[in-house]
Amino acid sequence: MGLARYFVKRILFSIPLILIIITINFILVHIAPGDPLSYIVGTEYVSPEYLQKLRSEYGLDRPLWERYFIYISKVLQLDLGISYRFREPVINIILERLPATLLLMLVSIGWSSAVGILIGVRAAKGYGRASDKLASTLASISVSIPTFWLGIILIIVFGVMLRLTPTQGMLSPNFMGARQLTPEMMIDILWHLILPTLTLGTVYLGTYIRSVRSLLVDELGKEYILFAHAKGLGSSYILWRYAFRAVSPSIIALLGLNLGTMLAGATLTETVFAWPGMGRLIYESAIARDYPVILGIFIFIAISVVLTNLIVDMINAILDPRVRY
């Protein structure tokens, strides 16, 4: 019963949190100089009457506080507004980008966490030996390598020189406009996914190796491990059943952290590979001063971060019997 009450409390707390996030974002977005219409107009001549019409249509002629309250009340009705640039509901634009971002982020976090945990465990097991040093070097390289540089190098080597993979995008032209997902189309998407996910995953890889390694090294030095050894348990059994289990809440927390920011996409990777994800949408919308889209994405991200943190806490509360609220 205590657990359920804790969860309800947490959920109720996150609502004002999201409202505060919206308010801060609203202010930040609007104090940036520049007029959304100037992006729409570009360097062309447009009748002043048309500009006036647009301005009142978008509500840009109202004072800021009025716009804020209109926006908040619309958001509470689950209406994120209309994009200035595309004149399409913001929710449609975001949902159109969401699958690409989820695919890229899930696969990247997926493979890098799996490989990172395995390497990290391996390094902790052989603490101080060659395998450990190798893993640490790998982690340092992967953490410090600039994403865009790695992406460009991969494109030049595999895309331009070897012509093995596509250099950009998510779909080949022949699959564009397809109404359903065929096996060939899935293979084509995976094909386009290889380089971006390799690039993005490499960034995460180092974090996982490092944290798993250091967590496990700490844990393996504890007395109950020594006792287990003395009991005559197999070292592999101790490693996985005792030590790894003990550190798994921290690893889950790390995963949750990464998954929480997933919706934000990866602007650099998406830009290098022309991947049609959320990261690029944020960037483009900021350049275009497309306020409704920027705010809409921020709300999406905020909700997803809050939600994943909630879920991680719940999992930990269930997993770890010591957690009592």
Binding site: P99, L102, L106, G110, A114, I117, L118, L181
Partner: peptide, 27 residues
Amino acid sequence: PDYTLLIAITVIVIIVIALTSYVIMRR
């Protein structure tokens, strides 16, 4: 919205999870 992509993602995630858990279980 194109939900087909989401299905593809799920399949990939399941494969990754399956592989990971397989390796962990064996060890």
